[in-house]
């Protein structure tokens, strides 16, 4: 039952989202299709909640459903506000990816997460990071392209405006990720922040973009140094995402369960 309805809901979502990518001309129809996909996910989660008689947050498969739902919602809101079509498609793609992983691994619906991860904070924490990293990665592409254009002396200030906006949006999500993490830690372990290596690097990343934002705000003309700060901030972000486990400090990390997302 649960599985068959999952196939139905995931089928409706995939079909409407893929269709939405194929009808690029009509804005209204596209939004409607995206919305239908979101609704079908929401209805399925509601059904699951009802039939399990508990919030569906306990297993790997269930948390992925929530990722799908929230990522697509945020994608649509972002599109509504900023008209970044690539972001909408990135979000829908990530959503579909999670649905697809669930489809490939039905056993994940019965594989429970370790107790520390069974928290309502887990999903928002991961989702906002996924989105934040996409924006920040995009901003660093702009930075690299910008630096290249500076070298060729063909730089145009409008690149900076694009980079700034991407950083602002990415930074907003990054802030949420950090704060959700702190609230979760408080709820689960009694302390917001323990300066665990992963937390430490997340904080460094956040500070890196803070430097960029303020530098840009104060000296909008000095774009070359700002571009370098932006490129450097992304290097730090990559350390935070992939590199932490290889640092000497990581032997003592609590974040070493290698099972996400």
């Amino acid at each position: 039952m649960i599985w068959n309805y999952f196939l139905m809901a995931a089928g409706v979502s995939s079909a409407s989202w893929i269709l939405s990518a194929l009808i690029p001309k009509k804005d209204f129809i596209r939004n409607l299709l995206v919305l239908i996909g979101i609704l079908s996910m929401a209805v399925y989660i509601g059904f699951l909640w009802n039939s399990l008689e508990r919030p569906p947050l306990r297993t790997l498969g269930e948390t992925r459903l929530w990722y799908s739902l929230f990522i697509s919602i945020i994608g649509l809101i972002t599109y509504y506000r900023w008209r970044y079509l690539w972001m909408l498609y990135y979000c829908l793609f990530m959503s579909l990816l999670f649905l697809f992983i669930n489809y490939m691994h039905p056993e994940n619906f019965s594989k429970t997460l370790m107790p520390a991860l069974q928290s309502p904070w887990f999903v928002p924490h991961v989702v906002v990071y996924i989105i934040s990293y996409a924006f920040l990665a995009a901003s660093s592409l702009v930075a690299i392209y910008g630096l290249y254009q500076v070298k060729r002396e063909r730089f145009d200030e409008k690149y900076m405006l694009v980079a700034d906006n991407l950083v602002y949006l990415g930074f907003a999500f990054l802030t949420f990720g950090l704060l959700f993490g702190a609230l979760w830690a408080k709820e689960a372990w009694g302390h917001y922040w323990t300066w665990d290596p992963k937390e430490t690097w997340a904080f460094i990343t956040w500070m890196g973009y803070l430097v960029y934002i303020h530098r840009r705000y104060q000296k909008p003309r000095k774009y070359v140094s700002a571009l370098w700060i932006l490129a450097l901030a992304f290097v730090i972000l990559l350390v935070c995402w992939f590199g932490v486990n290889y640092l000497p400090s990581a032997q003592f990390s609590v974040h070493t369960y290698s099972m996400q997302p």
């Binding site: 506000r81 900023w82 405006l161 700034d164 906006n165 950083v167 602002y168 949006l169 930074f171 907003a172 999500f173 802030t175 949420f176 704060l179 702190a182 609230l183 705000y217 104060q218 000296k219 909008p220 003309r221």
Partner: peptide, 24 residues
Amino acid sequence: GIFMMMIGAIYMFWRGNKVTISSE
């Protein structure tokens, strides 16, 4: 404090970079 920062972050998301004030 955390709650205020969250509101600030939503504001940032919504407004984006419309900053053109320059103190240069």
